[in-house]
Amino acid sequence: MTADLVPDAPSNAVAVEIDKVYKSFGRLPVLRGVSMTVREGEVACLIGPSGSGKSTLLRCVNHLEKVDAGRISVHDRLVGYHHKNDRLYEMHDRDVARQRRTIGMVFQRFNLFPHMTALENIIEAPIQVLGKSKGVAIAEAREHLEQVGLSDKAGNYPTQLSGGQQQRVAIARALAMQPALMLFDEPTSALDPELVGDVLAVMRQLAESGMTMIVVTHEMGFARDVGDTVAFMDGGIIVEHGDARQVIAEPQHARTQAFLAKVR
């Protein structure tokens, strides 16, 4: 159904399937029947006004939030539940954690561990979760630091790094788990304008290497140039979803048009 949305990868397997997802916080409905398919290698951008539910949707994908209704699967595995004999079983903590290993997440506020150096931030999970030896983890971490252009900052604590550098370390930290899917929640929104470019460059390079990515962003240039598809969310639903260039250049819905006119 969405195959024609990814021109350069039309027949790729489905990586993320979001199916009629509902979610409320107390009385406040935040997601109201969201469906979306992301294919392997696709860069799917989520745009929309603040409070429209973009972060919540992203957080549902790695089960940081539980959905109230609907299904999400990543690589054909249901997120947060086992499906057995036509019944759903809540996943044990341990299995949720296992599932999250292959889903990297980058936060708006970086969330680096402040008591660890850049290098220690990156090797923490490979050692503690994957059981890698320290030597191997460090060698790999150095490669990831190089990939994000921060080889010389291995020994710096987060407070000793600029926002852009922190975010790139956060990306390297997520990559160290060798995820098959990366979630970005407004990765450049907390950055000074002149630092945005470095982070976007790293993300673009990651996209070109074939990583499947869901990116919540207000950077329309990035969405248009790097994104394969763009979904416009408003009021907890996806209003418009399609080829990135098309949605941004010729939005069909009035609400999308109004939003794009404002962010441009």
């Binding site: 999250r100 936060f107 503690q128 979760v129």
Partner: peptide, 11 residues
């Protein structure tokens, strides 16, 4: 956010 970041790494 610290716990969430750690959880997202599979801890």
């Amino acid at each position: 956010g610290q716990s969430e970041a750690a959880a997202s790494l599979g801890m």
